[in-house]
């Protein structure tokens, strides 16, 4: 099991909104594949899969806020 984590984006940035997911639960994904996009104010940050596998679950949906260091989804 591998977690897709919202990475550190910079000092003082503690959360970001998930603008969109490029994949859906059940999709097979490759390591390094762009899986979702987080936005803070006017900057957007593309997040990649830390490992290959199947997207098992999404814990922060589109339009929802995730915490830096928090889990956005699970790959199995």
């Amino acid at each position: 099991m591998n977690k897709i984590i919202l990475p550190e984006l910079g000092e003082g940035i503690t959360k970001a909104t998930i603008a969109c997911w490029h994949v859906k639960v059940g999709d097979k994904i490759a390591v390094g594949q762009e899986v979702c996009e987080a936005v803070t104010d006017k900057a957007s940050f593309v997040i990649e899969a830390p490992a290959g596998g199947v997207l098992k679950s999404v814990s922060v949906g589109e339009g929802q806020e995730g915490l830096v260091g928090g889990t956005l989804g699970i790959i199995e």
Binding site: E8, L9, G10, E11, G12, I13, T40, D41, K42, A43, F45
Partner: peptide
Amino acid sequence: GKDLKIYM
């Protein structure tokens, strides 16, 4: 330094 806030 990979810091979005500083860059902005």
